[in-house]
Amino acid sequence: MEQHAGAILSPMELFAEKELVTVAAPMVRYSKLAFRSLVRKYGCDLCFTPMIVSDSFVKSEKARHSDFSTSTDDRPLIVQFAASNAESLASAAALVAPHSSGCDLNCGCPQRWAMQEGYGACLIHKPELVAEMVRRTRAVVANPHYTISVKIRIHKDTRSTVSLCRQLEAAGVSFLTVHARTSEQRSEPVDLETLAAVVSAVDVPVVANGDIRSLEDAHRVQRITGVRGVMAARGLLANPAMFAGEDYTPLSCVEDWIKISLETGAHFTNFHHHLIYMLDKQLSRAERRYFNSLASVVGVTEYLREKYDLNL
């Protein structure tokens, strides 16, 4: 789990002090410690872990060690859980509370397996259950600075989304992240009107998720909706320096990723896949084909050293 203990910072200080809080989304396989360390160097204020299934996390020490790792520099950090009952979420939160800044309940994952298990986006149709999960977790984690948040997708009916968010605010949620698509939608434009309606209806900070591919997108969404933060996923994969205002991944960021990966012992597949995303717009089709076929850290680093004259 944690490499060494350190002070915990409250994410709420970010919302109080910053005009716009920039957030790295929970991404399966990708939101791990090494990548969080990278995006923090380039203007990302708050990071989420990948989604962790609370039941297995609570029951298995092996799952805890494989699913969650952090360090004293990895702050503020939100640990996101998939849970289907209050006891499971509260117990998981209690385990990570000494090593993180907050926990988040995933009510947005639209994948079929998750919803069949009672996780993810199906929970937006069970507002009383989600509210009880928030209340129970708040009661179990005594630290008043520890945040309990929820990430949702929206209903087809705006009023239902607003009602859910008001119930969660009443239950004691610290902030809300709204992916402004329904669970059936994938690439359709996000619903900024519903997002703005949520912002107007609650007093807790709201973070926008979906279609944030640049710093310009982030400011545009804030200007239209009034959100206090923006969360990016694919945009950060393609350009980890996005929140620093870079239009594409700078070579300094590529160098930093290689150094961080080597220092932390990141798995080759993870190391390589991140670089594939980062360099997608900078390599020709033939170069991408060759680069994507490389099968070792040495092969990857030698290629990049020769092509870009990197200081590795």
Rank of each mutant, 00 (worst) to 15 (best):
L95N: 09
V130P: 01
N106C: 05
V134Y: 01
A139F: 07
R159V: 13
S101F: 10
N106P: 03
G120E: 04
A114F: 03
A131F: 01
G120V: 04
C122H: 04
V150K: 00
R136C: 07
A93C: 11
L164C: 01
S100D: 08
N143M: 12
V141M: 13
H145T: 15
W113H: 12
L105M: 02
R138L: 06
R135E: 11
C109R: 11
M115L: 05
P110G: 06
P110E: 06
P144K: 09
C122P: 07
S163Q: 14
G108W: 04
I148S: 02
T137M: 03
K156G: 13
E128A: 14
C109Q: 09
A131K: 02
A93F: 05
I154A: 03
P127G: 02
P110Y: 10
A170V: 10
H99N: 12
A93K: 05
A97M: 13
A92P: 08
E169Q: 07
M115Y: 03
L95F: 10
R138M: 05
K156Q: 15
N106I: 01
P98S: 11
V140H: 06
A121T: 02
S100N: 08
R136H: 10
W113F: 15
R112L: 12
G118R: 06
C103F: 05
A131D: 00
Q111Y: 09
M115K: 05
K151Q: 04
Y119E: 04
E132M: 04
C109M: 08
E169I: 00
A139Q: 14
D157S: 09
C103P: 08
K126L: 11
A97D: 15
I154G: 03
D104L: 06
D104P: 09
G102W: 04
H155D: 07
Y146T: 09
H99F: 14
A114D: 04
A121V: 06
V141S: 08
A139H: 08
P144F: 07
S163N: 14
A121W: 05
L168Q: 03
G118V: 02
E132W: 01
R138A: 06
K156D: 15
H145V: 10
C165W: 00
R138S: 06
S100L: 09
G172S: 02
R135P: 10
R159K: 15
V141W: 05
Q167W: 04
H99V: 15
T158C: 15
N143G: 13
P144D: 08
I124T: 04
S149C: 02
I148H: 02
V150F: 00
R166F: 05
E169F: 00
C103I: 08
A97T: 13
T161P: 07
Y119V: 03
E128Y: 12
C107A: 13
G102Q: 04
L95Q: 12
Q111M: 13
N143C: 13
A121C: 07
Q116V: 11
D157A: 13
T137S: 04
H155C: 06
G118Y: 03
A94C: 15
Y146E: 11
S163F: 11
A139T: 11
R138Q: 06
S163K: 12
M133G: 00
K126R: 12
A142F: 14
A142D: 15
H155S: 09
H125N: 15
K151V: 00
T147H: 03
W113N: 10
A97S: 15
S163M: 14
V150E: 02
R112S: 13
K156T: 14
A139S: 10
S101L: 12
S101I: 13
V150A: 00
T137R: 04
R166H: 01
